[in-house]
Design a protein around this nucleic acid. Structure first.
Length: 157
DNA sequence: GCCAACGTTGGC
DNA sequence: GCCAACGTTGGC
């Protein structure tokens, strides 16, 4: 069982949107980076936990937790010429991009800010705190996952 | 909106 | 296969 962090721009799709979805479930589509794609296609499994991270917004940081309910399958929007995610080089026979389905688990009372995460001495491995952290899907090891959850809850007490 | 850091593209 | 140019990401 692994842990992940998925980035999203809350103006486009936030953790509140995920919670409001029917079944509180949503396909995580539109990932167009090969390293992130490889995680979605090869490693993310049903039951894995996922931090939902809000980027490019007022409160940058981890907003809550979701759970993987369907493992990687071809992202249909790559075949849709009307979609901004359309990829003319992808075909159904050899899809290029993948997505997983995630389900809402919980929203933290307060976003755990990136600034706070960077200041935590035990958080050194997760891509967020590294230079040029541009991956939109990244692994989080067990130890850092637990510390981040603790920190997120502590800010609410 | 700025700009640094990074990934991708394409000419050679 | 190199690498400059270009586009995108994302914090500030």
């Amino acid at each position: 069982m692994a842990n992940w962090l998925f980035k999203t721009e809350p103006d486009t799709f936030s953790i509140d949107d995920l919670r409001a979805r029917s079944g509180q479930t949503e396909p995580w589509e539109g990932v167009r980076n090969y390293q992130a794609r490889n995680f979605l296609r090869d490693e993310v499994q049903v039951g894995d936990k996922v931090f939902i991270y809000h980027s490019s917004c007022k409160q940058v940081g981890i907003a809550g937790i979701a759970e993987v309910v369907r493992e990687g399958y071809p992202d249909p929007v790559q075949f849709d010429s009307n979609s901004p995610y359309y990829d003319p080089k992808a075909s159904e026979a050899s899809p290029r991009w993948y997505r997983v389905d995630v389900k809402f688990v919980e929203k933290f009372a307060e976003v755990l800010p990136l600034k706070t995460i960077k200041a935590m001495p035990d958080i050194v491995e997760v891509g967020l705190v590294k230079k040029g952290h541009r991956l939109s899907v990244m692994p989080v090891n067990d130890n850092e996952w637990q510390r981040l959850v603790q920190a997120a809850k502590r800010t609410t007490e």
